[in-house]
Design a protein around this nucleic acid. Structure first.
Lengths: 127, 127
DNA sequence: ATACATGCAAAGAATTTGCAGCTTG
DNA sequence: CAAGCTGCAAATTCTTTGCATGTAT
């Protein structure tokens, strides 16, 4: 484990956001200005494969990285793009039963409007 | 509605596959050799917005286009990439209830191994 | 030492866009 | 004819990769 990998992992594990590779790169650069984008992507790939972090693909948006590897889902605000975690117990079982297929995994993105954006919308609506 | 849009729509509506933009482009080119990739993408975008067809984003794979606009899910074979349709009644309601959030929509990709690939795997396993 | 990781820069894949000219209603 | 669409090519965005050098064990 190199200095750069440790730095990247640290950034992810201490953040509560779901950051893009670029956001992680920028944070890493503050601590280690010589780090390269390629290094960030390579390490994100390796750590994802190793099961240390989780990669979250989101349609029409760069992938995010999640410090938590425990099964949970993601709600993406359709206005600001923020990603929230949400737990749905037994979802895999539900999907297997309702499809009747041996589902080996899935990607799920839920869309919603977060509190912040809902508030803004309301205010604008009243103008 | 132009000749090219009609051609593209026709290709999608008469196919049973879930084609990528490029596959659609190649089929269109056979009928109308002068058609441009940009035209295909533009029309796919317009027709998706208009609700005539559906766009299916799949992680690490180009988007596919679906002739059916009725709610249904997609199972992607993790070996060959083929996309199958599957209906899950009441899934949106289920997701709303189990998250407790006003889910406005979602993208779901189920992973599985299709019959063909399962067969191949078994044969290879016996060698 | 030696195996692997880095920085850099170039390449890649998928998709979008600017623009001048052509179609369609 | 006006509005919108096309073909072409260049541009964008996100991510991967080749390679010479550097680093960890």
């Amino acid at each position: 484990m190199t200095r750069q990998r440790k730095t990247i992992l640290e950034i992810i594990k201490t953040s509560n956001e779901h950051m893009t590779a670029e956001e992680i790169y920028l944070k890493a650069k503050k601590v280690m200005p010589s780090i390269a984008m390629g290094t960030v992507y390579r390490n994100l790939g390796l750590m994802t494969e190793a099961g240390e972090i989780r990669r979250i693909p989101i349609p029409d948006s760069p992938d995010r990285y999640d410090k938590s590897v425990k099964p949970h889902e993601h709600m993406v605000c359709q206005e600001c793009g923020e990603v929230h975690d949400v737990f749905i117990d037994g979802l895999l079982e539900y999907l297997r039963q309702s499809t009747g297929a041996e589902i080996t995994g899935y990607d799920l993105n839920l869309r919603f409007i977060c509190e912040n954006c809902r508030r803004k919308d309301t205010i604008q609506g009243h103008r």
